[in-house]
């Protein structure tokens, strides 16, 4: 059971209150009309799947109902930080 800190509610809550939003920091294409098939496929389906540090979106479904980002280690499940959408993560490597 993950204990996730919501930066909106300023509280750590159990993972059942949240739903997973997938990889964070994926930019929506600015010029979708002119994307190649490769670029579209990449945007829609190809995700980072690291064995280690992962930046991901979470949605506080039964709380504030807002999205935020989390840096989590997918191997140890340790949550290293929660941060607001639109801001950059502090932690980008294991052990930093």
């Amino acid at each position: 059971m993950l204990l996730i800190y919501c930066p909106h509610c300023l509280e750590s809550r159990e993972e059942e209150e949240f739903s997973y939003g997938g990889e964070a920091h994926i930019a929506r294409p600015l010029d979708p009309e002119n994307l190649s098939d490769e670029q579209w496929g990449d945007y829609l389906f190809f995700r980072k799947n690291p064995r280690g540090i992962h930046h991901e979106m979470w949605y506080h479904a039964t709380g504030c109902r807002r999205y935020f980002n989390v840096t989590r280690n997918t191997l140890t499940y340790e949550i290293l930080e929660s941060y607001l959408v639109g801001t950059k993560p502090q932690i980008t490597e294991v052990g930093v």
Partner: peptide, 13 residues
Amino acid sequence: DSYNGYGQRGSFH
């Protein structure tokens, strides 16, 4: 699990 993970255990709920 609803989220990515390489731990061979999974969430209790």
